[in-house]
Amino acid sequence: MDSDFIERIQRITLTLEEEQPIMVRAVHREKILEEYFLSLIGKFLTTRPLNLKAAKNLLRSVWKLGSDLKIVDVGDGLLQFKFSLESQLRWVWDNGPWSFDNNILALQRWEKGLTTRMVSFTSLLMWVQVWGLSFDLINEEAGLDIGRGIGFVVKVDCRALASDQAHFLRI
């Protein structure tokens, strides 16, 4: 940019009328916040175009929510998943990770004041299967140790340990 243009931009000032704050009424805000509280913000981690209509239909089907789930494109490749019940949101959150067409869906819980520019996916919960361990290492303590070597451990799945199918550890 030329210096003359920059100088003109720097001299721009607001009129007294333009400086007045704009008041936004809080009508129905509590109901809106309650609706948003039952939301997850998600993004498919991909660089190629995605058939969003097919992805939305598949997620509604896999999550068994049908029209109970509202999926809104909020810009910047972000989707807002609006649930009717906390139990539905919790189930989706706890049973991921989710994907469509080999593209992982990163999710984050909605928070009051969140904007599209603030959304950041810095971690992703996923199950890891560890195969080929000696029998004495197929236990919760070994799972915690192995998991901590990989990252942050949320849970070691002990159901497989209690069944007749303890071929691997799920962390």
Rank of each mutant, 00 (worst) to 15 (best):
I138E: 07
V24H: 08
L50T: 14
L65W: 04
D68C: 13
L85E: 08
K82A: 00
A55Y: 09
M1G: 12
A162N: 05
N102W: 03
V74A: 05
N57C: 13
P21G: 08
R90L: 04
F44H: 07
E111F: 06
A160I: 09
W127F: 05
T116N: 13
V27R: 11
G75K: 02
A55M: 07
Q129Y: 12
G42F: 02
I9S: 00
F5W: 06
L114C: 12
G113T: 12
A106V: 02
A160Q: 03
L50D: 13
V24L: 13
I71F: 10
A26Y: 10
V154R: 05
K56G: 09
M1R: 04
D68R: 15
T122Y: 10
I138F: 11
C158D: 03
T47Q: 15
A162C: 04
S123Q: 07
D145T: 09
L85S: 02
T116S: 14
G149L: 00
E111I: 11
L14D: 05
L40D: 06
E18Q: 15
T46D: 10
E18N: 05
D136W: 11
Q165M: 08
G96M: 00
V92N: 02
K43P: 08
E17H: 10
D157F: 05
K56F: 15
L58D: 11
W91R: 05
A106G: 04
M126W: 06
